[in-house]
Design a protein around this nucleic acid. Structure first.
Length: 735
DNA sequence: GACCTGCTGCGGGATG
């Protein structure tokens, strides 16, 4: 190592000795690159490297060297999205830091108050903390913030991609910013991630307006093996049931479980079936198979609704080396908690995104010379006389194939940094008032919305409008000298511990039909009267949405035909949809598909040709017209809004937009599209005037309508892309 | 027909 590594010699002597004693043969590429950059302690750095490529060491070896060179009284603040990750990192760092005589302080909700008190007395070393705990520190110890963080030398943000695009990410930006403002100096920020689609965008997230130094360590091109198996769920013929409940169960999960049992036993693996319900179903099937064959169980469940004990048990089964273990899990096992390497990753149904698939696959093939193995399972319904467009085109299988082909090309979705997250601005305003004991509107605007701040771009006029609105809601009040304080309601929120999280716990609408509650529905879809929803196995028409009572009133829709597209998982990017269309349009063989999956793709291609989809984009389905755009969800939703504004009932749905025809013809709808194409781009207040239920984030309920529309559009609508499609599509029609 | 994350201060009582 001494001869080849230049960075090794830059490290503090005791750190060098630690590396020798660990028996590391060489520094990893990311570490070699990052050490000289971080060592200087004067710039932001973003490190993108594969899982287990030693990213945390790449940050900490030089950061600790820098800290020791400055006399050892400095503080490194490491911020993690998970408590479990803090516990893991504490174990890894504490051994090294003990030899350096640098204290390591874990700080999250499960950490004892005595540890926290001891840190507050010492204030140096390495602090491992969550955004929520940091928020609590700023809120409750506002007057000491400058003293507590006086000697901070670095912010290290782990799993950066897990923060981008969410309220929590905006909160993190704001917390680091507020500490810097309290100190009146910049603190170098180091961001770590395995999955950043666009380093420039991620850099702008790490520091608004910033351009950090980049360390991009491509994984040494470890080989990827992929096999996708197709399955066809037979049609249930009406009248054939004999009352035996077993007959109602789909048959493909049993077939898939049998395959998993056969190929996964004897090794460690992860299987992602995309929902908690499916996790339960597959774990149950696999446990039964182990039992029937009188072999020890090797299959363990892991998802967010399971108790901590059960989750820990599954993690322990994966970690121990004596017996093989496979976890059936949701994305709880996507982030970097320590479960060791796995042989293969199973994916049942299309993954939520290419980035997520890549993150999942990062758990496999981590040892030198071993390939990463992906086993995909794709299920389609057998085609009957009533098959809808989605089924005919075999869209799930196409999406799986498109995502894998993009993964192989090393493409994945860029981080979604465009969201304004004004919900979090409300939280940060209330928290800043707690921190300072009160502040003027001008001070708060400069702190949170000025140049280089997390909420830059909000005009002073909009800010005043927001403050007025918060005043009406009694979240803030202004005293006679103009200082803003907590209002009666604001006080209540801030003084409860639930205030520290920037994200809301799941909120659901009740679905009511004729005075009877059918159940609850999570609020993640635009709803307006006239829309049809699928719920409890039946189709309904939405009559009224009561946002105060959080209730959706529905009546049975005639016919009972389920919607042609029923929305997918996650938000699908335009690039994925275009790849799906390219695959339908081509005849190339996809080598990673088995015979059944190939047959399914061939059927999709046949339907694509038969329906003339090479040239036609408007597909008449009788009750609805489907506009097949092959765009991402944000563009489709923008197109739906353009039509809603012109009096239609339209919904973004899968690769297109579904428009209810009612008493209007296909020509009427296409005429409206043409009008939208030639008109000026409508302002949001007009575009979203009739759309209800825009509130998505924790504090959205407290925003004035105009800002709520702006916040919603920033995250969910791509009007430019939608309009570009409308113009192109209607131009083709005129020709 | 998705999924995930997080949480303080204080008072009362027991124990060393």
């Amino acid at each position: 190592m001494a001869g080849e590594s230049s960075s090794f010699h830059l490290l503090e002597e005791r750190i060098q000795r630690f590396i020798w004693s660990e028996g590391w043969e060489e520094l990893r590429d990311a570490q070699e690159q990052a050490i000289p950059l971080i060592l200087k302690g004067d710039c932001d750095v973003i490190i993108s490297a594969a899982t287990a490529a030693g990213k945390t060491e790449a940050a900490f070896l030089p950061a600790l060297t820098h800290l020791l060179a400055a006399g050892g009284e400095g503080l490194i603040v490491y911020i993690s999205p998970l408590k479990a990750l803090i516990n893991d990192q504490f174990g890894r760092l504490d051994r090294l830091c003990e030899q350096l005589e640098v204290p390591v302080w874990p700080w999250h909700g499960d950490v004892s108050a005595s540890t926290k008190t001891r840190f507050l007395a010492k204030r140096h070393g390495v602090l491992l903390i969550t955004p929520e705990s940091l928020e609590a520190l700023l809120c409750n110890r506002g007057s000491s913030v400058a003293a507590i963080f006086k000697h901070v030398t670095f912010f290290v943000v782990d799993e950066l991609h897990a923060f981008i695009g969410s309220e929590r990410g905006k909160q993190l930006q704001s917390l680091m910013h507020r500490i810097e403002r309290a100190l009146n100096r910049q603190v170098p920020r180091v961001g770590l991630s395995a999955t950043l689609g666009d380093m420039k965008l991620a850099g702008g997230f790490l520091r608004p307006g910033g351009e950090p130094a980049q360390v991009n360590s491509e994984s040494a091109g470890s080989e990827l093996k992929v096999l996708v198996k197709g399955y066809e769920e037979p049609l249930v013929v009406q009248g054939e049931k004999d009352g035996n409940e077993e007959d109602d169960e789909p048959v493909t999960p049993g077939q898939i479980a049998a395959d998993l049992f056969k190929v996964l036993r004897g090794s460690n693996n992860l299987v992602f079936p995309n929902s908690r319900r499916q996790v339960e179903r597959y774990t149950h099937l696999l446990n039964k198979m182990c039992e029937q064959r009188k072999v020890p169980n090797e299959f363990w469940p892991h998802h967010g609704s399971l108790s901590k004990e059960i989750r820990t048990e599954t993690e322990a089964a994966l970690k121990q080396k004596e017996l093989p273990a496979t976890a059936i899990c949701t994305n709880t096992l996507e982030l970097g908690i320590d479960i060791g390497a796995v042989k293969s990753v199973g994916q049942i149904g299309p993954p939520p995104s290419v980035a997520s698939l890549r993150q999942r696959l990062g758990r496999s093939g981590r040892r030198k010379g071993e390939p990463a193995i992906l086993r995909g399972y794709s299920v389609e319904d057998a085609l009957g006389p009533n098959a809808n467009l989605r089924e005919k085109l075999r869209l799930d299988t196409l999406q799986m194939a498109a995502m894998i082909s993009l993964l192989v090309e090393k493409w994945f979705e860029p981080p979604r940094v465009q969201g304004l997250h004004l919900s979090t601005l409300v939280q940060q305003l209330l928290s800043s008032i707690a921190q300072t004991g009160g502040a003027s509107a001008g001070q708060l605007y400069a702190l949170l919305c000025g140049p280089g701040t997390p909420f830059t771009g909000l005009t002073k006029q909009e800010f005043i409008e927001l403050l007025r609105h918060l005043g009406q809601k009694e979240l803030v009040v202004q005293d006679s000298s103009g200082v803003l304080l907590h209002g009666r309601v604001g006080e209540k929120f801030v003084n409860h511990y639930s205030f520290y999280a920037a994200f809301a716990s799941e909120e659901e609408f009740r679905v009511v039909a004729g005075g009877r509650t059918l159940g609850t529905l999570p609020v993640d879809q635009v709803l307006l009267p006239g829309q049809r929803i699928l719920f409890a196995g039946k189709t309904w028409r939405v009559d009224e949405v009561d946002e105060q009572q959080k209730t959706i009133y529905v009546t049975r829709a005639k016919g009972g035909v389920p919607p042609a597209f029923s929305g997918g998982t996650g938000r699908t990017h335009t690039k994925v949809r275009q790849r799906m269309r390219d695959l339908l349009d081509a005849s190339t063989e996809l080598a990673f598909l088995d015979e059944t999956a190939k047959k399914l793709v061939a059927e999709g291609r046949d339907a694509y040709v038969r329906l003339n989809l090479t040239t036609e984009f408007a597909i008449d389905q009788g009750r609805e017209l489907i506009l097949l755009t092959w765009l991402g969800d944000s563009a489709n939703e923008a197109i739906a809004c353009l039509l809603i504004r012109r009096g239609f009932v339209a919904t973004a749905s899968g690769p297109g937009v579904e428009v209810v025809k009612g008493d209007r013809s296909t020509e009427n709808i296409l005429d409206a599209l043409e009008d939208a194409a030639v008109d000026d781009t409508p302002p949001l207040d007009i575009l979203l005037a009739d759309v209800k239920n825009l509130a998505r984030e924790k504090w959205d309920w407290s925003l004035p309508e105009g800002l709520l529309r702006k916040a919603y559009a920033s995250l969910y609508l791509d009007l430019d892309e939608g309009l570009a499609w409308v113009r192109e599509a209607t131009a083709a029609r005129r020709d």
